[in-house]
Every structure is written in structure tokens, then in C-alpha cells.
Amino acid sequence: MIWLALAVLLSTTDPAVVQPGETLDGVAQRVLGDPAAGAELRALNPGLADPPRAGAHLKLPGPDRALARSALSSARHAVDQSAPGADREKASAQLTQARALFAQARYAEAANAADSAWKLLNKGRDASTHFAVDVEKNGDTRVATKSGQPVRVESEGKMVSVAPGQTVRVRKGDPPELVPLPSQLVDTLGVPTLLSPSDHRRLSYKSAGLLGPVRLTWSPVRSAESYAVTVSPGNGGTALHLTSKHPEIVLPRLSPGTYQWTVKALGVTGESPLSEQRAFELAREGLKLEVHETKWK
């Protein structure tokens, strides 16, 4: 009786024993963490009914499955990263063959086929690889490849290849996210929006000499270190090129006339596109002549 109870207990704890109502895909999910591995279980257990009988004892994959899976992953990664060409086509065909062998539970053959594909695409690539991993207290992770071959970062079922010079950030529970390089940040530097003076505004000053001061303003741009301002006289004269750390600038006094102005944001390694162009006119306010009656006769 004790032996019988022990036998029943073993059948319920043995992962190879099919539970009531369980399909092969369900067993694959439970045991291998992969519902798609049902095909492998079918191949390993020929003649098994599908769905299998509850209590049936299945033959499960051995450690060679993990080896083959790893070889497939490496080969797939190498194919994805390779440049188009004859080697890539050949490696891709070998990878397809390796996948088919894997699905048939022919793990050793699958591993060899995948390894052949990997070797084909990695001839002579054996420079040392350096990478850094940073884990914050909340578990968030940053991975940076410094040199050598790209490293693979996997999270939430998504894999990202991190080439030398690249950094990936992974927030816990999220897929990996490539951190833009400084040169990529240039594209995200916004274009300043001009605020004042409004386009074609006429500005009058009571002065007999140069006119001003004129204050130009525009919207601040995120990540901008400074701004380059160009003021071009309408008469074709020499343009003024000025920089400002703030989204405004006061121009030096200028001759009467029409001027066009534009602004662009400057970042750490690049600049934004030019803003729209606006114009303003500097005019001398008419001098009021006050003529007093003279005492001379």
C-alpha cells in the first residue's frame, strides 16, 4: 500500500508524466518553458497519441537540447548581423537546416549545423571583447560594449545586439532599449521657434546715428548648449553671426534698413536645422523740429 502511494506520488511530481487534460504543447510549456517545443516532444515520443493519455510517461530532451538552442541563437545572431553576400546566404541555409533538425529533436546535428553557419560568418573575427554591465538598486540595467564583437542583451523575449560604442538600457520588465549615440542626439535637437519681434515688424528709434538696441527672442530648445544667431542686412551687406547661451540676444546698434534673422540650436556634438527666417525693419523716428520765435529783428 505504501509503495502504491509512493508510486502515485512520483507520477504526480515527475515532470515527464502527462497530467490530466494536458496537451503536448502544455507539457512543453511546463517542462521546457516553450510551447513550440511540442513538436520536439512528438519527435522524441513517436506513436504517442495527441493529446497524450494522462499518466503517460514521456521521453524528455537531454542536456544536448540546451547546447543546440545556444548554437542556434549564436548562428541566428551572426546571420542577422552579417552583410549580404554569398556567405550570408549559405549560412542562412545552414541555419534553416539546423532549425528543422532541432524541431525533429536531432539536437546534436542541429548544433553542428548551426555551428557551421556561425563559423562561416566569423572567420578571422577573434579580437578581444570588452563590455560593462551596470545594475542600479532598482534592478535597471545598462550594458555598454567597449570593443570587439557585439554582445547580446535579452529581456522580455526581445534581443538587442550591442555593437562596440553602443549602450543599451533595460528597465525591469521592459525590453532592451538602445541609448542614442551623441551623434544621433543631433537629430533630436529641436528647431528654435522665433518669438519676437514679429515678422516684418517696423522698429523706430529716435537717434541720429545707429539704431537700437533690438532684442531677439525664441523658444528654448531641450539639450541645447547655446544658440547661433544670424542677422543679414537686406542690402546685401555683411551678416552678423552671434551666439547666445540663452534663448534671447540684444543686437548691437545697426544702421537703418531691413534685416533677416534666423537661429539654430547648438548641442554637444552638433546643431539643429535653421529656424524659420524673419525680418524686421529699423527706422529713424522723424525728428520734431521746434522753431522758436526769434528775438532778432
Binding site: 547546447l67 545556444s70 548554437a71 541563437s73 549564436s74 548544433a111 555551428d115 556561425w118 566569423n122 571583447t129 563590455f131 554591465v133 545594475v135 534592478g139 535597471d140 540595467t141 550594458v143 564583437q149 554582445v151 547580446r152 542583451v153 535579452e154 529581456s155 533595460v170 528597465r171 525591469k172 520588465g173 521592459d174 532592451p176
Partner: peptide, 10 residues
């Protein structure tokens, strides 16, 4: 948060 793999893996 993630698994990082470098080198040949196999």
C-alpha cells in the same frame, strides 16, 4: 532586468 551574452555562447 536582462541577460547579457558575449562570445560564441557555445
Amino acid at each position: 532586468a536582462a541577460t547579457v551574452r558575449a562570445g560564441r555562447e557555445i
